[in-house]
């Protein structure tokens, strides 16, 4: 085991995968010589050569579109979109091409690729550096969508994503790159070196896709979340003084429905939490699944806590961000009924 930040863990996953398989190649804006604006690919070009880790023109459709062709050829491209907010020019290539290639060719051509992108807010990035577009991917047939919440999972899930035979969207909560963040923006931040999940296994250690993780066992309510909000949820639960089970979904699609149902059937109450905008967010899918599968065990309506249905603001970041106070109030509300 080694102490790592999430950045170092992601870098390590790349290196392990590239060492094991010559067909793994890495490309994106600024990822080559410089090693990425967040440093997630630092040293890869120097170690594996410019053929395997290189800079691209600023064209997300070009990055994803050429990666589709490379994957169809037989390579395993792992590409970086510099911010999830910049993904839209490449979205058609993700939705209409990468996600459907296996289906439309009846398995003749496939698209094993990983599209990594830093996601989420909490860094004063305003509307073009803070978005959480996961629901735009989970809504698409043929994509798997992953959101790690700590260095150990970031490495393990990324290695699992690279091993997948189909395209995987890998959303990295950028607020967690250097340390867990509980949403208390006015308190000093904790580095991963002081957190148990900063312990990352050496070599090829995989966290399987489609498996949620119970972060905190509880009996009175279930809190379903992922990414940055895992840490906000844990803080809010302690502050609420309610025995809430906190589940880190880790993979949104395929969803670990068994883990969700087991927990909600046990607790009878459920709060769904994400940073993305509320309406048609992934929380709506979670709420729908929970009411369908756990209806006779529910003692209160499923509550959703999410970003407001506005663009992500700059000065009002902490009014927008669904921090521990809002989560605590939701826990209190779900306990009232």
């Amino acid at each position: 085991m080694t102490r790592m930040t999430m950045i170092e863990a992601i870098r390590d996953a790349h290196a392990v995968a590239m060492e094991a398989d010559d067909d793994v190649i890495v490309m994106g804006e600024d990822v080559g010589f410089f090693g990425g604006v967040f440093r997630c690919t630092a040293g890869l070009q120097q170690r594996f050569g410019v053929d395997r880790c290189f800079d691209t023109p600023i064209s997300e459709l070009g990055i994803v579109g050429t990666a589709v062709g490379m994957a169809a050829y037989g390579l395993k491209p792992v590409v970086e979109i510099q911010f999830a907010d910049y993904m839209y020019p490449g979205y058609d290539q993700i939705v209409s091409e990468a996600a459907r290639l296996r289906y439309r060719s009846a398995g003749e051509f496939t698209c094993p690729m990983v599209v990594r992108m830093p996601t989420g807010g909490g860094i004063y990035g305003a509307q073009t550096h803070s978005q959480s577009p996961e629901a735009l991917f989970t809504h698409v047939a043929g994509l798997k969508t992953v959101v790690p919440s700590n260095p150990a999972d970031a490495k393990g899930l990324l290695l699992a994503a690279i091993a997948e035979p189909d395209p995987v969207i890998f959303l990295e909560p950028k607020r967690l790159y250097n340390g867990p963040y509980d949403g208390h923006h006015d308190r000093p931040s904790v580095p991963w070196s002081k957190h148990p999940d900063g312990e990352v296994g050496n070599g090829h250690c995989i966290t399987p896709l489609g498996k949620a993780r119970v972060m905190r066992e509880g009996t009175q309510a279930t809190l379903l979340t992922y990414g940055t909000m895992v840490h906000v949820a844990l803080a809010a639960v302690e502050e609420a003084g309610v025995d809430v089970e906190v589940i880190d979904l880790r993979t949104l699609l395929p969803l670990d429905l068994d883990a969700i149902v087991a927990s909600v059937n046990k607790t009878g109450r459920c709060v769904v939490l994400h940073e993305a905008t509320l309406t048609s967010g992934f929380g709506a899918e979670l709420a729908a699944q929970v009411q369908a599968e756990c209806f006779y065990h529910l003692e209160a309506p499923v509550l959703r806590v999410a970003g407001w249905d506005t663009p992500y603001p700059h000065a009002q970041e902490w009014d927008y961000f669904p921090g521990p106070d809002r989560v605590r109030r939701a826990i209190e509300t779900v306990m009232e009924d």
């Binding site: 070009g62 579109g65 050429t66 062709g69 169809a72 390579l75 491209p77 290539q93 091409e97």
Partner: peptide, 9 residues
Amino acid sequence: PQAVGWAMA
């Protein structure tokens, strides 16, 4: 772009 990517591969 897919053709270009295939040729890059």
